[in-house]
């Protein structure tokens, strides 16, 4: 198993969204992903928990559960407290995440690759200190 354990962060401004994704890959094989997604003047926070397996340039996730909350919105009615994913959300997350990703480790950069109908798409993560 390739050792890609650690904390990896990707900051994206695509589409005008300053999104942050942080993966914590534990050496034990469990992972925790935190996503911060700005919305309505506040942000939606999403957490994923599951396990991962990385070997021979292939990364495979098993998504177990997720939680989400909305905080700090301009209109407080848009806020909601942390709640677990619904079954539909779990099913959709599994469909999106439980597929083969390619990965490449180079110094403090982890690049994941996914084959989409539009071709190869890559996301680069920088290693973060604890």
């Amino acid at each position: 198993m390739s050792d890609i354990s650690g904390i990896w962060q990707h900051a994206s401004a695509y589409g005008g969204r300053n999104m942050t994704i942080r993966h914590t890959l534990d050496p034990s094989g469990s992972y925790h992903t935190e996503m911060v997604y700005p919305m309505h003047g506040g942000q939606q926070n999403i957490h994923h928990y599951g396990t991962y397996h990385a070997n021979d340039g292939k990364l495979r996730l098993q998504f177990d559960r997720g939680e989400t909350e909305m905080v700090g919105c301009t209109d407080p009615a848009n806020n909601f407290p942390m709640r677990p994913f619904t079954q539909d959300e779990i099913d959709e997350a599994k469909g999106l995440l439980e597929q083969d990703f390619g990965f490449e480790l180079s110094g403090d950069t982890l690049t994941t690759t996914i084959q989409s109908p539009m071709g190869e798409m890559k996301v680069a993560y920088k290693r973060q200190d604890d």
Partner: peptide
């Protein structure tokens, strides 16, 4: 605009979790 769209009714104040995950996974709008 890179070419993958999930289309559906947009509820008040909502963007679904899967859309955000898709964005995260693929950098797709």
């Amino acid at each position: 605009f890179v070419s993958v769209v999930a289309e559906g009714a947009i509820g008040v104040g909502q963007v679904c979790v899967s859309v955000i995950i898709a964005h995260a996974v693929c950098e797709i709008v």
